[in-house]
Amino acid sequence: MIVRIMGEGQVKLDDGHLTELNKLDDELLREVESGDEQGFRRTLGSLLEAVRRLGTPLPDDSLEPSQLILPSPDASLEEVRDMLSDDGLIPG
């Protein structure tokens, strides 16, 4: 799966890591829904760090179609709320 972090680039991520990422995504969804800004900041950072750690960066000149787009680390709670679906940022 190709994941884009807005403002950073793309990483190739093995689908086997989705379970771990979905746990963080579920937590992020709860924090956005409750308006927990501090928890949101912490969990968004953890989610993006996990994607960076588990994924393999693609070259900057690579233009692969992204199956998943994640917000930038400095995205606001409201911006992320607009990106969310019923499943959160990560489907499944």
Rank of each mutant, 00 (worst) to 15 (best):
M1I: 02
M1K: 03
I2K: 14
V3C: 11
R4P: 04
I5D: 13
I5Q: 12
G7W: 06
G7Q: 05
G9K: 09
G9I: 08
Q10S: 15
V11I: 02
K12I: 02
K12E: 14
K12C: 03
D14W: 03
D14M: 05
D14T: 00
D15E: 15
G16L: 06
L18W: 10
T19F: 12
T19Q: 13
T19R: 13
K23A: 10
L24C: 01
L24T: 00
D25Q: 02
L28T: 02
L28W: 13
R30H: 13
E31N: 12
E33G: 11
S34C: 01
S34F: 08
E37I: 11
Q38K: 11
G39F: 07
F40E: 04
F40P: 08
R42T: 14
T43P: 03
T43G: 01
L44M: 07
S46K: 15
L47A: 05
L47W: 09
E49M: 09
A50S: 15
V51Q: 12
V51T: 08
L54M: 11
L54H: 05
G55V: 07
T56V: 10
T56L: 06
P57W: 07
P57C: 05
L58M: 09
L58G: 00
P59E: 04
P59Y: 02
P59A: 09
D60C: 00
S62R: 11
S62Y: 09
L63S: 15
L63Y: 13
E64S: 14
E64M: 13
P65S: 02
S66P: 06
I69T: 15
I69E: 15
P71M: 03
S72I: 01
P73F: 00
P73Y: 00
P73N: 00
D74F: 08
A75Q: 03
A75D: 04
E79M: 08
V80D: 03
V80G: 04
R81L: 04
R81M: 02
R81P: 01
D82K: 15
M83C: 08
L84M: 14
L84S: 10
S85R: 09
D86L: 13
D86Y: 10
D86W: 06
G88P: 09
L89A: 10
I90G: 10
P91K: 10
P91N: 07
G92E: 04
